[in-house]
Design a protein around this nucleic acid. Sequence first.
DNA 1: GTCTATACTCTGATAGAC
DNA 2: GTCTATCAGAGTATAGAC
Lengths: 207, 207
Amino acid sequence: MSTAGSSAGSKSGPKKGTYAKGIAKREEILTTALEVFAVKGYRGASLREIASSVGLSQAGLLHHFSSKEELFAEVLRKRDEVDEHAHPDGGTVRGFDTLVDIVRHNADVPGLVQLYATISAEAADDDHPGHDYFVRRYATLIGAIEQHVRDEQEAGRIDPSLNPLQVARMAIAVADGMQVQWMLDGTADMAATLEYFFSMIRRGPAT
Amino acid sequence: MSTAGSSAGSKSGPKKGTYAKGIAKREEILTTALEVFAVKGYRGASLREIASSVGLSQAGLLHHFSSKEELFAEVLRKRDEVDEHAHPDGGTVRGFDTLVDIVRHNADVPGLVQLYATISAEAADDDHPGHDYFVRRYATLIGAIEQHVRDEQEAGRIDPSLNPLQVARMAIAVADGMQVQWMLDGTADMAATLEYFFSMIRRGPAT
DNA sequence: GTCTATACTCTGATAGAC
DNA sequence: GTCTATCAGAGTATAGAC
């Protein structure tokens, strides 16, 4: 958390010619650790395996991160940074299409899908290191979609009688639930089913 | 698997006055093991913890089940038995209401919800001891709901233009996905949202 | 910054006494 | 049927050399 602060980014330049390599190594570790966590989950991924994947000994890895828990927290934090950069909506989901795009892309990174499926279930425990992260993540996400539903209702593209919160919860639930079906049965198409859901609520029934 | 066969049930009576106690102990182990697996998942639950929860040593526990994997398989099998007894539809879901009832009841057994959420994610790995179980479980469940959707369409209660398989997948996805939201945020109402979903598809839009 | 070596804990499983 | 004792292995973490 402390060592490589946010201001040490690419443009502003490190204060000396020093530890640019250290930062690069740190980034490499985070990227590799994400992949291992993705496949094995938090509990299933060992420090030894992560370390050897990145070409370090286990002790060498723990030079950069003081504990497994801190490494994991940093992996999640970095993931959020990347997501935010890819979809710079200021925390808002720009539209259902954005969500479908994300889900469609997820089919290309099965490891990442399994990471979130595994971890979000593990993280239900209050004392799981990722608990607070997931609680916040879902609250933010559902709130954003709920607002988007309201906007679409005002624009006349969604039946105004539908409950925005319920629709938002359903949308996320479909996305999450389809991950499970897709992991167990490759013929399931996460993006297609989510798109089907959105097309359904856009039909605008009379009641 | 071998020791206490199915025919040794309550009424038919054990062949001798013997090992009724052994069977009872076995049942007690399965019940307790379910609870521990539910909270910790397969990998997170240790034999020692399960054993001590049921008042045995780890070696004592392994007298009844030859391995952790076998114990786990028996827990899942027993769970299916109980479910089948509670909903004797011969494998078919009698209707959406049945599914909503199950989901509503799940809110009373958070441990069980977490078991399935945790395990179904873990079980995405081909070599997980529960993999085949979950693949079969989902195939059966989705098939049954898909058929139910067809029946409802023929009865004129669901828009015939809707794709039965997509609806079935969405229904299960909503149920699964809401579990995650509910585990992370107690204010989420799994049954209510699932009911909302069914009420939505029953409205019968024109296309 | 990275290593080797080590300490300690916990895991699943087995052997054998009672 | 249940126990104690023990095993080999894997886990995280730390100490100290280089």
